[in-house]
């Protein structure tokens, strides 16, 4: 399989702020790559380099086999970009917005019009097609912006934080739309600071922090990297916590964590529900009264915290990239 996006050692500095610090990335054709990172991690800068809006100071990047520097004109014919803001013109109608984009992709008058109508239909905007965008809701504007990125049926699509600022319902709607559209085999690079979003939409996730990819893989691989399953249980007393710890020590595949104050025990395990059964049997044999017990898999949130030392939705200490 060939790669639709290849980046090698991208560096971009703004004065003393390093937005990209040697970013490497490969996105195979027809897959969805989620670029996950906090504000200021360099996600938008990376997208801007790939879409020829910015030139990197160092390193190289190719999109759809074309060099972002040397073949920028041809590259632009093969990509679609939907940025962080819905970049639609308030005074134009939905139809006029898409028609304009079609004309600027040089589709010609007739094809631009047909394509605009087709996309409005597909994104459930037909009723609002001839009203100025000014009156659209946030979700409608995003959908229209996304439609704009699809006008020329690009082979590589870039969506920069497509759901930031949307209410939960519009976000779900947007996810459906995005899932639907990549069924056609389009390569998609999606940036997000929402773990759920990456988890649900992306085939591969690249965790980016301070301008570099610090981990990469499927959501499951990333979760495994942090540690597999854990047995978590709560007991009533400190004495019982000690007993439980001894009883379950043999099941642990890593260091056991005990929270003396909350009477809470975390035991890294392997083996799924069989281990859970065994644990309950052992605790029962020792007459430990268990308040709560469960088998947990790490969330992407845990992944993030482990990898970067901070939560994804808290701004990084770095200056924002923008």
């Amino acid at each position: 399989m060939t790669d639709a996006i290849v980046a090698e050692g991208l560096v971009k500095r703004y004065g003393s702020v390093v937005a990209l610090n040697g970013l490497d990335l490969k996105v195979p054709e027809g897959t969805i790559m989620g670029l996950l990172g906090p504000n200021g991690a360099g996600k938008t800068t990376a997208v801007r380099v790939f879409t020829t809006l910015l030139e990197a100071d160092e390193g190289s990047a190719r999109v759809a086999g074309l060099d972002v520097r040397g073949q920028a004109d041809e590259l632009r014919r093969n990509i679609g970009l939907s940025g962080q803001y819905a970049a639609v013109d308030d005074n134009l109608t939905g139809f006029e917005n898409l028609d304009m984009v079609g004309r600027l992709y040089h589709l010609g008058r007739a094809r631009s019009r047909d394509r605009a109508r087709e996309l409005l239909e597909r994104f459930d905007l037909s009723d609002a097609a001839d009203r100025p965008v000014k009156g659209y809701s946030g979700g409608m504007r995003r959908r229209l912006d996304l439609a704009g990125a699809l006008v020329a049926k690009p082979s590589v699509l870039f969506l920069d934080e497509p759901t930031t600022g949307l209410d939960p319902r519009s976000r779900l709607g947007m996810w459906d739309v995005i899932e639907e559209l990549v069924k056609g085999g389009t390569t998609l690079l999606l940036t997000t600071q929402y773990l759920e979003e990456a988890d649900r939409l992306a085939d591969q996730i690249a965790v980016i922090d301070q301008g570099r990819v610090i981990a990469e893989g499927t959501a499951d691989q990333l979760k495994d990297q942090v540690g597999g399953e854990r047995l978590e249980l709560s007991v009533a007393t400190a004495a019982e916590l000690g007993t439980a710890r001894t009883a379950l020590g043999g099941l642990a595949v890593g260091p056991v964590e005990a929270d003396e104050r909350q009477h809470h025990l975390t035991v890294p395990v392997a083996g799924g529900s069989a281990v859970l059964m065994e644990a309950i049997r052992r605790l029962d044999a020792e007459s430990v009264k268990v308040l709560d017990i469960g088998l947990r898999r790490p969330t992407l949130d845990d992944v993030f915290l482990t990898l970067t030392g901070h939560h994804p939705d808290s701004d990084s200490a770095e200056e924002q990239e923008k």
Binding site: L53, D73, R76, L81, L104, Y105
Partner: peptide
Amino acid sequence: IIDRFRSLP
């Protein structure tokens, strides 16, 4: 909007 224009051919 300028970003969008600049990403078009």
